Simulated assay, not measured.
Amino acid sequence: MDLKEVMAINLRRIRHGKQLTQEELADRSSLSARYIGAIERADVSASVTVLGQIAEALGVDPAELVTKSG
């Protein structure tokens, strides 16, 4: 599993755990909902800047988004 797939899985899990929609996360992170969806599907690779924006919007350490679990 590559890093963009790991981020996709972690992002979806954390977002659902915080009961946020893609639109709400997009608003909080100043990104588009379409882009959030593309990251969650592992269609695109997020830059470190975007990783930071998403982590801040979710209130988590950026490492949580890219660390393999299990």
Score class of each variant (00 low, 15 high):
D2N: 15
D2M: 07
L3F: 13
L3D: 11
L3Y: 10
K4M: 11
E5I: 00
E5H: 15
V6H: 12
V6I: 15
V6N: 07
V6Y: 03
M7N: 06
M7K: 03
M7V: 14
A8N: 11
A8G: 12
A8K: 10
I9Y: 13
N10E: 11
N10K: 13
L11T: 05
R12D: 13
R12S: 13
H16A: 14
H16N: 14
H16P: 00
K18W: 02
Q19C: 08
Q19K: 15
Q19V: 11
Q19A: 14
Q22S: 05
Q22E: 13
Q22I: 04
E23C: 01
E23H: 03
L25E: 11
L25I: 07
A26D: 10
D27K: 14
R28W: 02
S29L: 03
S30M: 04
L31H: 01
L31N: 03
L31E: 08
L31Q: 10
R34G: 05
R34K: 06
R34L: 09
Y35S: 12
Y35F: 15
I36E: 10
G37V: 06
A38Y: 01
A38P: 00
I39E: 02
I39P: 02
I39D: 00
R41Y: 10
R41L: 14
R41S: 11
R41V: 00
A42G: 07
D43V: 03
V44N: 09
V44H: 09
S45H: 04
S47H: 10
S47C: 07
V50H: 08
V50N: 09
G52N: 14
Q53S: 14
I54G: 06
E56V: 03
E56Y: 06
A57G: 06
G59V: 06
G59P: 03
G59N: 04
G59F: 02
V60Q: 11
P62V: 05
P62E: 05
P62F: 09
A63S: 07
E64Q: 15
L65Q: 08
L65H: 08
T67F: 01
S69G: 14
